[in-house]
Each structure stands twice: as structure tokens, then as C-alpha cells.
Design a protein around this nucleic acid. Sequence first.
DNA 1: ATTGACCATTAGGTTGCCTAACTGTTAGGC
DNA 2: GCCTAACAGTTAGGCAACCTAATGGTCAAT
Lengths: 154, 154
Amino acid sequence: MNDSEPADPGLLALAEDFREALRHSIYLVRRLDADGELSAAQLSMLKMLLDAGPAAGGVRVGEIARNLGVKVPSATEQIIKLERAGLARREPDPDDSRAVRVTLTDAGLAAVASANERRNTVMAGVLSSLSDEDRAALAAALPVIGRINATLLA
Amino acid sequence: MNDSEPADPGLLALAEDFREALRHSIYLVRRLDADGELSAAQLSMLKMLLDAGPAAGGVRVGEIARNLGVKVPSATEQIIKLERAGLARREPDPDDSRAVRVTLTDAGLAAVASANERRNTVMAGVLSSLSDEDRAALAAALPVIGRINATLLA
DNA sequence: ATTGACCATTAGGTTGCCTAACTGTTAGGC
DNA sequence: GCCTAACAGTTAGGCAACCTAATGGTCAAT
């Protein structure tokens, strides 16, 4: 598995194709995110806060940064924007006065729901032009991609 | 969008999962692009020039912009950077003096090859931890993703 | 010969990320 | 009980890549 073997050609080819697919997908993502309302970075953060859920009264800034794959100051910056927009709230951590806990406001909850729905509709429109087999193939690959991403976040 | 469309729930779910996968993949892409040497945008452009190949002495700026999914001034900006780095060349179009034709230099060719190889190796390392079935599922989905992207570029 | 469309560049602004430096807090060694 | 090292987050400053609007040439069709 993790031998220092130089290069399986098949694996490298798959790697190249996957990179290519992701590279082109950037365009798709940009189109999806151009719907105004909420930037990609902000929606990502809101979604993350939603997923982390009502866990223990909020998520710490460092954890947010780690989950999003950015550095702490970048997370702070986005959090401040969300706070100013009334979508998130910053509160002191009762157990550790150095830390800050971030939670969604009701407005934030509504915003992430509506932005998500809108983007999903657009994406569904794109996917509707695919054949059933294509959709099945895509669906089968999504958990794999999820696993890849999870590996990297660890 | 259209209230006469009932919005197939399965399709919407797939759309959401796919969006989620792409959203998380941003982190992967960022890691791949952090190898110094060449930014993601620059490598994308070089790769595009390579793919468009030796076709008719270069690619026009507007076409580059369209292929990359950015506006013309953004393309110009990147081209100028590549030119300053000695990786691309700008020449007047003999058939239309308004237009500019962009081609790879030898250095540009070498740069895209080496950057690509490096990123492929990293990606292959990531993929090597997957099971054979996972890799097969991923490989089966890539043409589908390609089709999705092609649809959007049209 | 003029007008309007078109190609690319320039100018100016935004967003999102980074590193480095700083403030305040906690916890361990003595 | 201090003092210091490590830690959490913010502030400051800078950079890359995108955008829109305005500009300068060039082409083509009247």
C-alpha cells in the first residue's frame, strides 16, 4: 500500500483524470455560487455550523478553520462577516476564556436553507440531462470522493 | 424556477450530495495547488493552451477566457503573468489586427509537464489508499463529470 | 467615410486567503 | 504562589484572482 514504489501507471492515469475533472468542476461551482445572496465561503461555513449542529453550544474558531481547510485568521474574518450579517453569533466559551464558540442564528439557519435549496435546484437541472446510468455512476462515486476528502481532513 | 416542474426528490438529493462532494474537494484541490511552482489558475491556463495544441498558431484571448470560465480581463491578466514568466508568448493575429494569439513557449511546455507530474504523484498517493472497488467507482464516474462540465461550457 | 460592433487592455475595486505580530488565558515547574 | 511556555483568537498587512466599467484600436457594412 504505502510502499515507496515509484508509480503505478494506472493509478497515475486515474489521478490525472480525477484532477482534470475537479479542475473543470471549478467552473461549475463558480456558476452555482454566482446566485448572489451568499458567497461560497460563507455558505460553506454556515453549512459546517449546521452540520456540527447544536453540539455543545457552538463550534470553536480553530475547529471551524480545520473543518474548512483554512487558517484561523481566515476563519475569524469570515465569522466576523457572518456576525455582521446577523447569520452567526460569537459567544465566550464558559469552560475556557481564551476560546470563542460560534453558533448559527435563526436568520443564519434560514439563509443556509434557502441558499442550499436554490443551488440544489440549479444542480438538479444540470443533472436532469444525464442518463439514468450516468446518474447511478455519479451516485456510486460520491461516497468515494467523500472518503478521499475525509482522509485529507484528518 | 418553474412551478410546473415537480422537482424529483431523488434528483435533488443527488444534487445536494454532489455539491457537497465538490465543496469538500476544494480543500483537496487547494492542497494539490500548494506545491509552489505554479498557481492553479496559471496551470489551468497552460494546460488549456497545451490541449488546444498547435492549432493554427495560438489561441485568442476571448477563447481562452471562455474555455476557463472567466471574463476576458481576467484572462489578459493571467496571460501577462505567464508572458512575464517566459511561459507563454503573445503575438498579433495575422488575419485580424484586433486579436492576439497566445502560445506556449518551450519553457511553458516544460513547466506544465513538470507541474502536472508532481500533482499527479500527490493525487496518486491519495488514491492509493482506496480499495479497488472504490477506484473503479471513481473511474466510472469521471466521464460523467466530464459530460456535466462539457454541458456547462457550451 | 462613417458608424457600430468587436477584441483586447487598462483602471479600480472586492473577496478570500496567507503570514507575522499581538493580546489575553491556561497550566506546568519550581 | 509565581513565572514561563503553550495555546486561542484577533489585528495588521499583503497577495492572487476574479469582477465591472471605461478606453483604444480595428474591422465591416452601410
